[in-house]
């Protein structure tokens, strides 16, 4: 009984510390120019590059815009904040605090997650208000936004484990992964029209399942059952969290 109570108390303490880390990141990084550029402007320009001049109905484009907005905004905080904190040695503060590495990774990811959820509301509101696009299954859309945001925020934290003090190093590596994902994950081009190697990557990409969930929320045709999308995103989150934990431990030696 005492062990259970100690465990519960430890978990609560860990979450409280993770939230403290997220709050700190919100206070410091949300208004940084490079976060705004990589998290908000970059997905907008990517979208315009696809959408301008194409005779597409906004209803078909808005779910994709939400998905890539989440991809870029959720993974834009930690690749900037963690190397900068390595440079100023403030990251050592987190690593030496009475907090498990899992909770440090969770706290770091939470700031990217919350940022992304807020940023995703912009194209969602634009779609609903300006283009009067209906959202017949709002809970599924919310699940899509939440899981996709958390998944890519954790991926951002995972990439930020690379032991550098330069955000540019991590952003370059991250873009090597993020940019191809847009083309193969069914965001703008249906997966069936992607060449075979791309289709293999598509089935491994969390963006495929997240985009599918968002499309489902808007009542559009989907590739997979909602349960499969949710399970795939949860598995990806677990893998990213576990890998991040291992890498931070290894690189901290």
């Amino acid at each position: 009984m005492r062990n259970v109570s100690e465990f519960c108390s430890g978990v609560c303490t860990g979450f409280s510390a993770a939230w403290a880390i997220a709050r700190k990141d919100i206070l410091i990084y949300y208004a940084k120019p490079n976060i705004i550029v990589s998290g908000m402007l970059f997905p907008l320009f990517m979208f315009l590059a696809f959408a301008v001049g194409r005779p597409a109905d906004p209803a078909t484009m808005v779910p994709g815009l939400i998905a890539i907005t989440i991809l870029f905004s959720s993974s834009s905080i930690e690749p900037v904040s963690i190397p900068l904190e390595r440079r100023t040695k403030t990251f050592e503060r987190l690593l030496s605090a009475p907090v498990s590495l899992h909770m440090v990774v969770l706290g770091e990811s939470m700031s990217g997650f919350l940022y992304s959820c807020c940023v995703a509301l912009v194209p969602l509101a634009a779609g609903m208000v300006l283009f009067r696009i209906p959202v017949p299954d709002f809970p599924v859309l919310a699940a899509g936004i939440i899981l996709l945001s958390f998944c890519f925020a954790t991926m951002g934290t995972l990439f930020a484990a690379y032991p550098t003090e330069s955000p540019g190093d991590i952003m370059s590596m991250l873009n090597l992964v993020r940019l191809p994902l847009i083309f193969v994950s069914g965001v703008f081009v249906p997966i069936g029209q992607v060449p075979f190697p791309g289709q293999v990557i598509a089935y491994l990409s969390p963006l495929t399942y997240g985009n599918d969930l968002v499309q489902a929320g808007f009542g559009r045709a989907t590739q997979f059952h909602t349960g499969i999308d949710i399970a795939a995103l949860c598995i990806a989150i677990g893998i990213f969290q576990s890998l991040a934990n291992r890498l931070y431990r290894a690189f901290n030696e």
Partner: peptide
């Protein structure tokens, strides 16, 4: 305050 929160 941030450090205090980290240390619960």
């Amino acid at each position: 305050i941030f450090t205090a929160r980290l240390y619960n």
